[in-house]
Design a protein around this nucleic acid. Structure first.
Length: 274
DNA sequence: AGCAGGACCTGATGGC
DNA sequence: TGCCATCAGGTCCTGC
């Protein structure tokens, strides 16, 4: 599932592949992917516009076009963006293809059809509630210890649910939350405000270090994640708890357990996480 | 307001 | 073998 490190890896790939390219057309096979505008309006108005820059906000990809409009893409769980130098077709679950003036294209496919695309003027970005309500970027200066400390104090939910909340912090998903809590030695069911100062400091450091290392490894490929060039990531080899139920903890040897916390499959070490 | 739980989807897996 | 139920998870929506 693409979380922050995967989306950042895709962003970097797309930046190499798409910058300056001019849109020539769009084919839409599954209309549910395109939230706005209509297929007709997109097909009519997108051609001729060029890619000027690619940003990421949380798990959202933002393709800035030279005329001040933005293509916003969210891959949700199984969405994929794959660039090809020649026209692509025939692949399964293909929902939309952007073609460029030089004959290359960007294909959007998604097994579960949850992924979404918007095209809108930059000033309308605030109307996308999912983006405008996002919390700070975990790797930016906006995310600092006093913020984490304050939020932990005022929330009543368990720490797993808080870390999954995009309005608290943008970009974390199920895999990295489990890994972060293991690194910080904190059990996922603990209430946010119960964390000691030592644990809060460890959590702050773990959020940053796990994400940074995962970006270096170009993300985690558990089932079908691929970057924009079609390559898998390698952080799955570094996972300490996620997907390791009944296997020994790499830190203390205790058997990794799995239970549902905050409605999500949650992996943890019952001995070295407290 | 904050929080919990269901809905949206399809493919993989397991039980019978 | 085939059928059915269950599970996977990001975000939005509803209701408490």
């Amino acid at each position: 599932m693409p979380e922050l490190p995967e989306v950042e890896t895709i962003r970097r790939g797309l930046e190499q592949l798409l910058l300056g390219r001019e849109f020539a057309g769009v084919e839409v096979f599954y209309h549910g992917s395109l939230k706005s505008p209509s297929v007709e309006e997109l097909q009519q108005k997108l051609p001729g516009r060029r890619v000027a820059g690619i940003e990421r906000r949380g798990k959202y990809l933002l393709l800035n076009l030279h005329d001040g409009t933005i293509l916003v893409i969210h891959l949700r769980m199984t969405g994929k963006l794959v660039f090809s130098r020649v026209a692509a077709s025939g692949q399964k679950h293909l929902h939309l293809i952007f073609s460029f003036a030089d004959g290359s294209c960007l294909a959007f496919s998604d097994i579960r059809k949850f992924g979404t695309i918007w095209w809108l003027p930059k000033e309308c970005l605030v109307e996308l509630k999912g983006i405008s309500s996002l919390g700070p970027e975990p790797l930016s200066a906006d995310f600092h210890f006093p913020y984490l400390d304050r939020e932990l104090e005022k929330r009543t939910v368990n720490i797993k649910a808080l870390l999954l909340n995009q309005q608290f912090l943008a970009g974390l998903g199920n895999i990295y939350v489990d890994e972060i809590l293991h690194r910080a030695c904190v059990l996922p069911g603990r209430s946010s405000r119960s964390l000691t100062r030592t644990e809060r400091l460890a959590l702050f450091a773990a959020i940053r270090s796990v994400l940074e290392e995962a970006i270096v490894k170009r993300g985690t490929t558990v089932s079908d994640y691929r970057d924009a060039a079609g390559s898998a990531g390698s952080f799955q080899e570094e996972l300490q708890v996620y997907g390791r139920r009944n296997q020994p903890c790499r830190r203390c040897g205790q058997t990794i357990e799995r239970k549902v916390v905050a409605g999500r499959g949650t992996h943890f070490c019952p001995l070295c996480q407290r």
